[in-house]
Nucleic acid binder design. Structure first.
Lengths: 230, 230
DNA sequence: CATAAAATGATAGTTTTACTATTGTATACA
DNA sequence: TGTATACAATAGTAAAACTATCATTTTATG
């Protein structure tokens, strides 16, 4: 209706797909704006409804509560970035090169090739970095997980760890490595902005990318050498 | 009063130090119990007060709100584990050995040498793993950080990254590596328990420790070799 | 042991959040 | 033209997140 490409979203992350309607798209756009501005804790459906000249009751037709909305944005983000990675690595032959391209896209703050201009991608990425993990870290995780809430994220991790397996077939921790890089990059970006003494921030440079790329290169070179010497 | 050793806690993480009084200790013990049981979102001062046969108003004399209580537990945990690491590495000469000992203590689920039996250390560790990061990831982080709320965590990171600097003097990312291991271990443990497809869980084995220890060993060997060959 | 100070309990109240229910109106679509 | 769907408007409830006051108990101290 409003999007070039509509993403598949686990249906337990919403009561009604907001991508389908005008109000739904307004909810998506403005919840991203508002959560980025005031933070998830201070965010309420009442404030959101006021922002878009609608009512609480209308928002509740799309989402059971704000936590479900966050899970939706989370799933939507991972669906989107997986698609972007798919497109931007299609032409690459070498698996290692594919993997590095994908990792860089995940770490960099702004994706260059944004196909979903109807939401502010920079703000969404900032939300995923600082609020995203809250959609997982709670007591209801097992219930929603059963219903597939995190499938988009899992698919991406499966794809990238599959590539890593191709590069280092005998490596036992490929999923841990991928999730450590993804989650680590989020936390390190947050630390760099707010708690620089917990990180190695340098001016005018995104150390986070250098750190994780170096990390991955070291691992690959070591394991390939190891494989050769056996 | 009740503790063998009283920990220094940033005073912005409480209104009155709960370590000093009987009720305060009850609040510490039972908030850990209750948060572990029902999760931080469902946790309220009313429920806590009922559990200890006290009143909401009394709890509010120690903490402004539940978020401040979480920050207190966070600071207390890092103070405690830094002390434990201090004690258990005192007798070790070799810096590399010290570092590995510390990392293992941070990653393992239950610390063997528990000097603070008055709180359930296993439950506290589980809270730090699954709720701890929420004390950082919010819009008030800059304010409380100015007042030293996270100093205990920072001190620990400074200590370990200092050791790493001794081992690999020219390594540029020592703090990032330490925080990546600490935060990574928390998330990986949570994933192993709830979202195993995001990790490389194996039965009857804590892969998380193997993963990070292997990685650290690789990094050190690589950099030492590199230093030698130059 | 007496007494002041501190800590806690008991009670009551306010504001905000997090919802639910109902009814009327506009829009789409068939 | 009728019918379903979507949304707005309004109202209401229960719980959460506090704040205030005053009585009572505990503790420190001289």
């Amino acid at each position: 209706m409003f999007l070039q490409i509509k993403l598949t979203i686990p249906n337990c992350t919403c009561l009604k797909d907001p991508q389908e309607t005008k109000l739904g798209v307004l909810i998506m756009q403005n919840s991203i704006e508002l959560i980025d501005e005031i933070g998830f804790e201070a965010f309420t459906f009442k404030k959101l409804a006021q922002k878009i000249n609608s009512t609480e009751a209308s928002v509740y037709r799309y989402f059971e509560n704000k936590h479900q909305l966050l899970m939706f944005l989370y799933a939507w983000y991972w669906g989107k970035i997986e698609y972007q990675i798919h497109v931007e690595t299609l032409h690459i032959e070498d698996t290692e090169e594919k993997l590095f391209k994908a990792i860089k896209m995940l770490i960099e703050k702004k994706n260059s090739n944004d196909i979903y201009a109807f939401v502010d991608e920079l703000k969404l990425k900032r939300i995923i970095e600082s609020e995203g993990i809250k959609s997982i870290l709670n007591k209801k995780v097992d219930d929603v997980n059963k219903n597939g809430a995190f499938d988009n994220y899992k698919n991406l991790v499966a794809k990238l760890s599959g590539w890593l397996q191709e590069i280092i077939p005998n490596y036992a921790f490929s999923k841990m490595l991928i999730t450590t890089i993804i989650e680590g990059a989020h936390i390190q970006h947050f630390f760099a902005d707010h708690l620089p003494r917990l990180t190695d921030k340098q001016q005018d440079k995104d150390n986070v990318e250098s750190f994780f790329i170096d990390f991955l290169k070291l691992l690959i070179s070591q394991n390939i050498n190891y494989g050769q010497s056996n």
